[in-house]
Write a protein that binds this DNA or RNA. Sequence first.
DNA 1: ACCTGAACACCGTTCAAGT
DNA 2: ACCTGAACACCGTTCAAGT
Lengths: 220, 220
Amino acid sequence: MAEATTKAPRRSDALSKERIVAAAVEILDAGGEAELTVRGLTAHLATGRGAVYHHVSGKHDLLAAATDRVISEVTSGARSEEEASEAIRALALGIFDAIDAHPWVGTELSRNPMQPAVLRIWTSIGVQLQRLGLEPDALPAAGSALVAYVLGSTAQYVAGPRRATSEVDRQAFLEKVADQWRTHAPQAHVTEAAAALVEHDDREQFLEGVDIVLAGIKHR
Amino acid sequence: MAEATTKAPRRSDALSKERIVAAAVEILDAGGEAELTVRGLTAHLATGRGAVYHHVSGKHDLLAAATDRVISEVTSGARSEEEASEAIRALALGIFDAIDAHPWVGTELSRNPMQPAVLRIWTSIGVQLQRLGLEPDALPAAGSALVAYVLGSTAQYVAGPRRATSEVDRQAFLEKVADQWRTHAPQAHVTEAAAALVEHDDREQFLEGVDIVLAGIKHR
DNA sequence: ACCTGAACACCGTTCAAGT
DNA sequence: ACCTGAACACCGTTCAAGT
């Protein structure tokens, strides 16, 4: 009987928020933010232009959901067995690597700092910081400093969202900074620092910064 | 004779990059990024649609120039008489206040981290850090940490660029963070920290973060 | 309920034509 | 050289009409 009253079977590939978000992530990974258009997305999903609006409220919602999808994989993998500052380093590195793999995430996190993905980051960092044994009234500033550092770094790290030649441009930018440093303070050790600035490894330097902020939280 | 051969006098309000950028800043301050359109801008300047393209290369260039205009006022006001860490605190606060007055600047700095305004910030911070007496090979990580913290904080601080009710939303977001903290670690002192998170003063907390990073740079 | 796709109300940028 | 404004090639979103 159940069989008889069943309506025409649903297409196995029926639209859903999950499928739409997955397609958006694919497009964003392939072509960056400029490539994500409703037209392109609906073509990719082989559906009509307005179909996605039954599942997401608009492009902002879609971008936030795609970002949350990437970030939630990082924060849900957090391990609580290790020491708190080690867990924070691991969490920060996880975010860095996720943004390295999906540069549009870095841009989106900074552009809209009140989205679900940022809430996840705040929560994870807060939980670990709490294990560090800080005074309660020191926790907000410590959390805010770490979140700001992590999101600020990743925004700095991902090149401008619109340029294909991003790696070249980033190098060129750092060389400009180094030039300025040399011009304003031409001592030998500044020249040395300027050279180091251009040649550093981004990932290592990001971790150094996490350690700086952690040291500051402990020793202030 | 000079008089006789003079062409028809130039309109005293002839277009120039400076005038265009000034108009853009006005529009951005009044209505935010969404309000800045080429149509609106050229109407405001009482000129034809394509006229601005003789002076700026496009909308990206215009936005970067407007941002640089705001930031250059901060960095050029830097004083070198004071102690280095005091100068860094003053510089950071100057940037914070500029972004408080022009929220679109915060969004733009993070969106495109390789623009002239960011170069100014790097330069100013580098010059002051150099006076702190760091080892040359510690300078790049210290500079990068400070720049990331400052830009990350201001991006967090300015609400999402598209919402009018930003102050309400920011409060609501912090309450969500506080809720998560309480849920994940319901100890009394976490509850206390969560309350402090919601009630803090943004500007004070920003400065606390600068001190945390400075302490970390010195004590790592 | 869900989907379609034309229509709507916009964009940034270009470029022949004017001065 | 500089400016004009129509034209071009797009956008995100809505909505009557279909199933």
